[in-house]
Design a binder for these strands. Structure first.
Length: 331
DNA sequence: TAGGCCATCTGGTCCT
DNA sequence: AGGACCAGATGGCCTA
């Protein structure tokens, strides 16, 4: 359920305790569309003002209170409670507690996002996906895996890659593309920090494998966790193939035993798998443009657009040849 | 230096 | 009354 959000200034005037305490506070103009960067000069934002010299302010409030009494009959709305010093202290204490809770809540949210990052198909210690990109990639990943499970999409196909990269930013697309590329030299094209911990071939099944293309300049490629797709392959072609998808959803008798790395829950129900058609909500109408992968283009950090040809090798062992670079464009 | 991303503070709203 | 959730505002950090 979406809670209605009533902007200040649109409805009845609401005076918050802080505003009430701050006698010279000007009411917000309600224009929330202005970028916060345009407010930088401020110190004028009432929310940021310090609560200092409360005693002095309270004295001034007393004077204002007297003036206000004269206009009281003209004022609408609920009668304001007098903000005594004790009330101020209680309010302050409540605010401090609320801040701590809010911090804790956001940390929990960030922890969840971090967990989500670790099960994404590409994971880089040095180039962390932003929050929004993590969510977009997760959404794409679920869609791609669901389509793959339904049999309509090969994990090696270009379409799989395209689904994975839909709506992602250029850097994230590069990261994903780099992660999903093959190369005989693990660690090539990575930052030195990223090479740490990268295992040499042959890659262990289910391990974190660094895929990179020696033919490309050096975007900050991360690692591609092949475990997820290997798991997927096992489900598709292995012992689980005879089970109906619903058995997995139910998590009942047909649930395959799997003690590997955490795998995203696979939604197989078709109504949970949105088709890759333009929707009013996704991709965002104002920011979406066909991703480079959709166009077959990767823009490298050196300013080249690399056109890749052939299937996207997602979880092949490194002995597979890298994709061919058929053409290179320059801006 | 502009812009992206983030953490934090804050007030409003809803719910228990 | 107080907690959870949300969104706006702000400043800091980083990068192109």
């Amino acid at each position: 359920m979406i809670k209605p959000y009533v902007r200040q200034g649109e409805g009845e005037e609401v005076i918050s305790p802080l505003q009430w305490m701050d006698e010279d506070m000007s009411s917000p103009d309600g224009d929330t569309s202005v970028s916060s960067h345009h407010y930088r000069a401020s110190g004028t934002n009432p929310q940021v003002r310090e609560m200092g010299s409360e005693d002095a302010e309270e004295d001034e409030e007393d004077e204002e209170e007297g003036q206000e009494d004269e206009n009281k009959s003209k004022r609408r709305g609920p009668k304001k409670k007098r903000m005594t010093k004790a009330r101020q202290e209680r309010f302050r204490a409540r605010r401090v507690k609320a801040n701590a809770r809010e911090r804790s809540r956001m940390h929990g949210l960030n922890d969840a996002l971090e967990n989500l990052r670790t099960i994404m198909p590409c994971h880089s210690k040095t180039q962390k996906l932003s929050k929004i990109e993590t969510l977009r990639l997760a959404r794409n990943y679920i869609c791609a895996l669901s389509e793959a499970l339904e049999g309509g999409l090969s994990t090696e196909s270009r379409a799989f890659m395209e689904t994975l990269c839909k709506g992602l930013s250029q850097p994230t697309t590069n990261l994903v593309a780099g992660c999903l590329q093959l190369g005989p030299t693990p660690g090539a094209g990575m930052r030195p920090e990223d090479r740490h911990g990268v295992r040499a071939p042959p890659p262990p099944l289910g391990g974190m494998v660094s895929y990179s293309s020696p033919g490309l300049p050096s975007p900050p490629y991360g690692t591609f966790d092949s475990a997820h797709l290997l798991h997927l392959r096992a489900m598709k072609g292995g012992a689980y193939e005879n089970h109906s998808p619903h058995e997995y959803n139910a998590g009942g008798v047909g649930t395959p035993p799997y003690d590997g790395p955490p795998t995203p829950p696979l939604s197989i129900s078709s109504n949970l798998v949105p088709k890759q058609e333009p929707s009013p909500h996704y991709p965002p109408p104002h920011h979406y443009s066909p991703s480079p992968v959709e166009q077959g283009l990767y823009q490298t950090q050196s300013g080249y657009d690399v056109h890749l040809e052939g299937p996207y090798n997602t979880y092949h062992p490194p002995h597979m040849p890298p994709r061919h670079i058929t053409s290179v464009y320059r801006d």
